[in-house]
Write a protein that binds this DNA or RNA. Structure first.
Lengths: 352, 352
DNA sequence: GCGTTTAAGGGACACGTGTCCGCGTCAAGA
DNA sequence: TCTTGACGCGGACACGTGTCCCTTAAACGC
């Protein structure tokens, strides 16, 4: 078998050497054209360009990197690819990185697999690693230490309170302050919390914001809020919200407003209340969190908190790229993102 | 500056040579340990393993590939990362490939950028390329030709009717047959089509299925169906469905069932009908498409078509990997996926 | 036709890796 | 003490690339 393709179609060119042979030039000459070096006849340059377009030859990126070229790759660890806000962040980040000339290597970081994922990124010599989501604290902290030991910059989006981690997070306390002020202004004084029970790990957590707002208005947290999270298996989804709403209605001391951990729970609550023949927001107000697309499609449409994902990711890209050339920092970078309350139909004046 | 790290922490090891020096062994010895070659003392092996665990050293994947090791990478072209079914497919595919030892290089294929994306994949020497979504036909066909010229296998998920392309698609005709039979059995004879107007490009398109079912029952397509797509700007989203529903209500000859292109339109229609004080499914039936999570969260819950994404992707992974070692095929691989009708509350007997 | 300039040819090296092979070393057994 | 393995060392090469540098050939001016 000769190197020539018997079918007459172009042969598969896997190296500049083969490509140069195909064009009828020396490998070095082709290389000079590809890298825009001077001292070449225009005619030669065009000859190479034309062959390049015809054959679609691409230099081996791995060999380029071996010669010292940057990989221009960023590793992205996702908690999963099913949570809509996380996917939106991924989409935005991928686009932001692409715009800056980086490509994204995406892996789902299942519990216990963190080591393999990060090792894989390191073996690919990515220039940085981003974590999106919420991970097992010890595991992610160990991974971050490993990255730092290799001099690879990192960034954690959405998980606050990690030791020595560069972090970008939504200020959930500020979000809940906005929600609470909105409801307090509407006359509400009794609140049901759906899924919002995790003990605050920082001063930017939801409960912190709720506490602070009530205190500022001279109200007592325990007297004003009610939690029934223990009554049902906690899935933080539609069904969970639906069951919780029903449970709240069965209480003698019924809150006038429900605050949900996320939009799915809130929409479940809307359903639960609808099934009990309540009219919203006349009988009860409901607030979600995340401002997913569905929040504008429910009946009634859902008042919720927008995460400002575009802003988050723009900041993330900046923070990430600012680390690239720079020497490692002593102190981690911490950035907070301001959320925005989106008022829709599911909240209204408290019933007298 | 010496090579030793003055801070006392472990130095950054970027090659087996540096790592071997750090362990106090020859590079070749370390290499033999890493590749499990025989003729090594157990003690030496353990020494290397321990240092490996301590330093987290990883061999340079690019150099490995240069030496002939497979890249174990698959390129995935996405139309966008915002369409929920497309993202679900991506998530499932990423997981299926990971399970088989492949990692995923994901790029969004914006119109006109296809060439760059595919060139990038080729320069990374990916072992295969997958397209998920719906692309400009000429552009994707050109890209597929380019891939074939390079001997790189490909697979298109969800876009039917491409020349010489390996394709996996949902049989939308079968889907619509199931929908139509369900509705016909409920007594419906007059159907509104929301967004379903594109001329069929193959015998597996929706309109083909609708036509076929009506014909089999001895009914006339034009007499039974009504389309008002031209009345509104076509975004195929919630608002589009909402407006369309209102328009159908304004017709003198009002259909008893509405068939939507996707769930978003269907949910918009639910809203539009609710605003007109219609009760579903008493007054009207509505069917969506895709079986997104939201379809179970609406009021009433939505009858829709499930794409069987798990099955699609499992097939995709098989088809993809079967191409890897094999010689190129003369005929493209075409696979059809069977959809499943999911009946919920939004469909019921036709009003007399 | 001759000398000079210009451009392509081609050998060499480095990058990090796996692998082959010959050489040195050390310890155990005779 | 000598022989014999067993095992680690280190040089060499290849993979595909960019770049340096020297050589060769063609083109050009006179």
């Amino acid at each position: 078998m000769s190197k020539k393709n018997p079918s007459g179609s172009a042969p598969i060119l896997r190296s500049t050497a083969e490509f140069a042979r195909h064009v009828g030039l020396a490998r070095t000459t082709v290389s000079r054209v590809l890298n825009g070096q001077p001292g070449l006849k225009q005619k030669t340059i065009e000859r190479v360009q034309r062959a390049l377009a015809e054959t679609g030859f691409t230099p081996n990126a791995h060999a380029l990197h071996l010669k010292g070229k940057r990989t221009q790759m960023v590793g992205i660890c996702m908690e999963d690819l099913l949570t809509p806000p996380a996917v939106k962040k991924l989409a935005a980040l991928q686009q932001a990185l692409r715009k800056r000339g980086f490509s994204s290597l995406i892996e789902v970081f299942t519990p216990g697999m963190g080591r393999e994922v990060v090792r894989h990124f390191l073996s690919m010599r990515v220039e940085a690693v981003v974590f999106i989501g919420h991970f097992h604290q010890e595991e992610i902290e160990a991974r971050i230490l490993e990255l730092m030991a290799h001099g690879t910059p990192h960034l954690v989006i959405d998980q606050f309170g990690l030791k020595n981690a560069n972090t970008i997070s939504l200020d959930r306390a500020v979000a809940m302050e906005a929600v609470m002020n909105h409801l307090l202004d509407l006359g509400h004084r009794s609140f049901g919390l759906l899924g919002i029970t995790r003990a605050p790990t920082s001063r930017h957590d939801r409960l912190t914001g709720i506490h602070a707002t009530l205190k500022a208005r001279g109200l007592d947290f325990d007297a004003c809020t009610l939690t029934l999270d223990h009554l049902h298996e906690r899935n933080n989804d539609f069904d969970y919200g639906r069951k919780l709403a029903a449970s709240f209605l069965a209480q003698s001391r019924r809150p006038t407003a429900l605050l949900a951990l996320n939009d799915a729970i809130a929409i479940g609550a809307l359903r639960g209340l609808h099934e009990a023949d309540l009219k919203l927001p006349r009988d009860l107000s409901v607030v979600g969190f995340n401002n997913q697309e569905v929040a504008a499609m429910t009946t009634p449409t859902l008042t919720t908190v927008d995460q400002n994902i575009a802003g988050t990711i723009e900041t993330a890209a900046e923070v990430l790229l600012s680390q690239l050339g720079a020497p490692p920092r002593a102190k981690p970078i911490i950035r907070l993102i301001e959320p925005a309350l989106v008022v829709r139909e599911s909240t209204g004046p408290a019933r007298a």
